[in-house]
Design a protein around this nucleic acid. Sequence first.
DNA 1: ACACTCGGGACCTCCCGTTGTT
DNA 2: AACAACGGGAGGTCCCGAGTGT
Lengths: 209, 209, 209, 209
Amino acid sequence: MTRKDPEATRAALLEAAFWTFYRNGYQASSLDDVVRAAGVTKGALYHHFSDKAALGYAVVDEIVRSWMLQRWVEPLRGARDPIAAMQEILTDVAMSTEDEIVRHGCPLNNLAQEMSTVDEGFRVRLERVFSDWRLGMADALRKGQKARLVRSDIDPHHVALMIAAFAEGTMSVAKMMRDRSALEANAATLSDYLETLRPGVRPGATTAA
Amino acid sequence: MTRKDPEATRAALLEAAFWTFYRNGYQASSLDDVVRAAGVTKGALYHHFSDKAALGYAVVDEIVRSWMLQRWVEPLRGARDPIAAMQEILTDVAMSTEDEIVRHGCPLNNLAQEMSTVDEGFRVRLERVFSDWRLGMADALRKGQKARLVRSDIDPHHVALMIAAFAEGTMSVAKMMRDRSALEANAATLSDYLETLRPGVRPGATTAA
Amino acid sequence: MTRKDPEATRAALLEAAFWTFYRNGYQASSLDDVVRAAGVTKGALYHHFSDKAALGYAVVDEIVRSWMLQRWVEPLRGARDPIAAMQEILTDVAMSTEDEIVRHGCPLNNLAQEMSTVDEGFRVRLERVFSDWRLGMADALRKGQKARLVRSDIDPHHVALMIAAFAEGTMSVAKMMRDRSALEANAATLSDYLETLRPGVRPGATTAA
Amino acid sequence: MTRKDPEATRAALLEAAFWTFYRNGYQASSLDDVVRAAGVTKGALYHHFSDKAALGYAVVDEIVRSWMLQRWVEPLRGARDPIAAMQEILTDVAMSTEDEIVRHGCPLNNLAQEMSTVDEGFRVRLERVFSDWRLGMADALRKGQKARLVRSDIDPHHVALMIAAFAEGTMSVAKMMRDRSALEANAATLSDYLETLRPGVRPGATTAA
DNA sequence: ACACTCGGGACCTCCCGTTGTT
DNA sequence: AACAACGGGAGGTCCCGAGTGT
């Protein structure tokens, strides 16, 4: 019973690989695990991907990337007020996120931690996704500055880098502590900080958690 | 040529294991790699550690932990001004740190990312180290509050958690970007933020990077 | 040279495993020994059998079982006179048996001795084979009773159990003594005993060896 | 805390080795298991025994042998009526035996099955024990013949061999079936058979189980 | 007489990738 | 396009035995 839908097979493989790598790590995942989860055989896998690394790269380029764009970049692109938009994203991530993500952390960060020093191919791809994320936030902030919704004395790139780092760090520690409240506390802290980026706001009091 | 110095053998194993795990990840490291690096044999390894997990646990409990305490906790314990002390630590980490650490990231974070969802034994040990770190900072901040060197309206635990998350996230993104300047930029940002924790300081301007 | 005949590969593995286990014992046999004897690789072995135990179970279920059925049960099924049939089997075993079997004993008994207290999976499978053997003999005896060829005052199950135990014990001591004459002597003793199961026979004199 | 009683250490080692080998088989037992059970260290073991085989041989020569002599030979030596004495032994073995022995079988037979084809040193030692057993029974039977308590037309050696084989086989099948009733049934059968060895007894009815 | 330490090897398992087949 | 069969090798574990020290 050969399923003759190469596109669907490829997608199933990608999906299965993403979850397997996400949950167990890339190196600890066996291709047998992946094909079992995808419900196909090794032959199918090696028809679509030349080797394990190619599969991993495709997961980054197609799954992780689109996941990141959807979650962080798209909502900012159309938003008039970037600060409010980011705060909303934060709330979403902190509150409505499935337990799975609290437990396993950020897919981008996981792969980056594990693979970026081991395999340069992974590193450049992950860096690309990360860069898109930061540039998306920086762009939104710049637009906000033009619209007088963001203070003009901040460097959008620096702030974007800081936000990204803080977000990644927060996911990371929440995963280590296995404690959603850590995630929520830091999200609130970051949200308060974002408030200080508005023009004319005297921050400090709110920054204090 | 039987070296009869069990303590030295154990220490060599631990040291070698730390670096091997740190550089390649725990799961991707083979015990053959470790024993080769330590200059001993598998027999010696299995005399001192019951299995690979026990070796990993010992690395966390003895190497990672003491590294973290030395780097972050000890300097804070004796310090009169916790804010200045932390800023100094940040400068140390950002400036004088070896390239090795920029490339490979924070040992605690690396292991935590890789292992905390895979092996509960790792998670609790890593969490313990992380907790010591946070509590060390929170303690220093509380003492600073009593000495009127830190604003009294902040919650030491929240701030400590935030600092830890931000530091981890920064190490993580610097590793992914393979760019020391990202590390320096964020260290400066955090240093500025710490300044806002002083009593009577009007923050905001400095927080903007 | 990839042989693409899974059935043959599996059969070769089973055959090789049987002889290796039979000669060296199950636990003392390495899978490398088995694959070397079978002329295949470990990859092929682990494709057909999930682990060493599964291979051992298959050897019991497929080789040992069929060997036992062929040797002891089939000849009895069609036989009109069960006593004569058993005596013939005994003669076959004692006389015409290869030295290999005198040296190494009964395959069923060997595995049972080694594994039945160590691995329950082995025990139940071996017990099943043993049970088939006993039931085969008991059935034949019962039919013989109906045909007035066997005394009606004996319990077929008790006699079958006794014959089986005696046969196993005989193989066992012959192996320990490395002496075929012991086997022959006991076979003769058992043969004489079987004679006493005929109706109207006054036994006793013959039973004395 | 060095225990300075070499004789006791040696005895503890022997005892522990016997039980470990008995329960898990010789080859499957590690010396670490043995020394752990004995409560001594490997150094002590290698002081008393040159290697694993030497330990195994000593177990046969000292533990298994004396166990067999005590159980089967001593009671026969002083007995006036060998048949009654053997029947008593059988009853003892079948009824009062600990479950341990029902589960694990005859120590002599276990070792013989496992080792006699693998290691000639074991085989000759086990054969010696077995020979003592048979000769003990044959001697008793011969004396019984002189005392007119045993039929004169039987060959003591043949009968002894048969009894030994049947006893071993019975232990073996009881172990495989994990069923004490099999042991009891066969013991009764053998006891009845022994009755037929008395002078002037017309057997047959009793032999039928 | 005994304890602790270590060496090297071999075992089972399993994994990545390839080959022949449908 | 997809599958089942297979190759070869490495990984973690553990074991026997031999050292050194007391």
